[in-house]
Design a binder for these strands. Structure first.
Lengths: 188, 188
DNA sequence: TGCCTGATGACACTACATGTCGTCAACTAG
DNA sequence: CTAGTTGACGACATGTAGTGTCATCAGGCA
């Protein structure tokens, strides 16, 4: 048996989310979180770089997934085909079954400017991984940057709509609708 | 004659930028900034919500400009025409003559994650103003959100390239190149 | 002359974040 | 079986960001 209960980071995340929902992000202090998790303040900052990060841990795993997708994707696909495949086969499945949880989390993030900033930064890191992937496939700097931003726009908009709708339907459907809307906007 | 030297906010901005360039954003404390500007710490936070904001004050003026552009734009333009006009006639001129200054500022922002986050947030606020404008012109929720994100992608990518290039050339040219690249990516 | 307004100074205080050291279970080598 | 090592955590100290509150005083106004 261990000297401490295992899963410190997970306990901190759970305690933090509970408290944020109950009292709002700004009103919750780190000592309150650690008290609920049975740990000390110092330990919180060993697991998370700052108070906001406790809501985003795990998203660091996404960029490597993007990189792997590009490495494994078959050659000969057009940029937009690559985006659609990547979003529908790699990104969207990661959200499956998490809709309710994400809706809760989104309410917390929405309520605080600082959290919104962090969310944007995490998205930018994912987009940067995408841009690197496109460059690796031979796209020019400009085209790669644009393509990655397009992908980020599509998935961001699609997920927002997916969470907004009262009834859940497949995220991949919404991704494809968003791509269609984007093509429509660009073409006219 | 006034009891204090006028232009407190401007002095604080100038002092802050100087110090950030000299020592890096993280290494500079607010008391150091206010000492150079001849003010107190408390006064700094009266003018700027936080330490980062001193680099972004003034960008709050952009969303109203976007809103006005949409109100005054002639009817009958397609979405992409509207984006090109808005970026070339309203947004790009605001950057004219500021290239060297923006390059300095960008180096500072690049060096700090927190500043990058704030920059993304400011961009998101501008994009939201754009989305509202498109909605006001009759676009659906999804199309408006996508269109605004496209505009943000175009201007963001274009400005980055404008600042990267060794020789300065018209930002509007680069905007049009970026739009062309985007259409090319989407069409294939 | 006297009142009001607004920007600033002065001071106190909370919370976030970090550096450093001590502790002790679990693991590892011989 | 033992000695040394590792790693997660607690305990303590400290620095910086950010806020609330009240005092001060030049300039405007009646």
């Amino acid at each position: 048996m261990s000297r401490w209960e295992p899963g410190a980071a997970e306990r901190l995340q759970a305690a933090a989310l509970e408290l944020f929902v109950e009292h709002g992000f700004a009103a919750v202090t780190v000592p309150q979180i650690t008290a609920r998790a049975g740990l000390t303040t110092r330990t919180f900052f060993r697991h998370f770089a700052d108070k906001r990060e406790v809501l985003f841990a795990g998203e660091d795993a996404v960029p490597p997934v993007i990189t792997r997708f590009f490495a494994e994707a078959p050659a000969g696909l057009s940029t937009m085909q690559l985006i659609e495949r990547g979003l529908c086969e790699v990104v969207a499945p990661r959200f499956a079954g998490m809709r309710d949880q994400l809706r809760v989390r989104r309410e917390v993030v929405r309520s605080d400017e600082g959290l919104r900033e962090r969310e944007l930064r995490k998205g930018a890191l994912v987009a940067e991984a995408g841009a690197a992937g496109f460059r690796a496939r031979g796209l020019g700097e400009l085209e790669a940057a644009v393509a990655a931003q397009l992908a980020a726009t599509i998935i961001g908009t699609a997920v927002a709509r997916w969470l907004d709708e009262p009834e859940e339907r497949p995220l991949t459907d919404i991704v494809r609708e968003t791509i269609a809307a984007l093509k429509d906007v660009v073409q006219h």
